[in-house]
Amino acid sequence: MHEAAIGKGFDGVLDAARAGHGWAWAAIYRQLSPAVLGYLRALGVPEPDDVGAEVFLHMVRDLPRFEGGEGEFRTWVLTIAHNRLVDERRIIKRRPVEVIPVEEIEHGEVGRSAEEDALAKISEQRAFELLRRLSDEQQSVILLRVLGDLSITQVAAVLGRTPGAVKALQRRGLATLKRELSSLKVSS
């Protein structure tokens, strides 16, 4: 499932990143930022770019203690992102803020045409609403599987659950999505 993995050169990239080489950090950021930022966006984190930047800075700070391959590295970074998400949710519960949809902020920033932007906005809105029908854990499981390209075991490591529990959450989440998609089709 790792379509955009660094591959065999991962260890060299990681060593170069530890040594402070900019190109290595650019490669790591390019590789992981879509998953990290997409996960934060899909779960409704306000200002996902800022939270994502904090996730990467946390990664830089703890990188000397990291050991493992590319799969473990991806799991580790998404674990940081998930923990940061939990913190953000806790902060929002204590101090509610008005959430501005991301697509409104990013409108026109990614070089898309107006038609493409409109279609993307509709798709994002629909996906966002459908995902809200799931429980928090079901959302996390589905998004980590789809956006993070993590296996059941890796998702279990991120969420601190057993693989069996993750499998059950995934199955129920997919069933809910299938049911909601069917109901939308009937209503339309």
Partner: peptide, 23 residues
């Protein structure tokens, strides 16, 4: 569709700023 909508990086300027901060 979910993957296409959400799995994308930030804007170029934001990405540059982030990488610079990381380095």
């Amino acid at each position: 569709e979910v993957k296409a909508v959400y799995a994308r990086g930030p804007a170029k300027q934001t990405a540059r700023a982030h990488v610079a901060a990381l380095v």
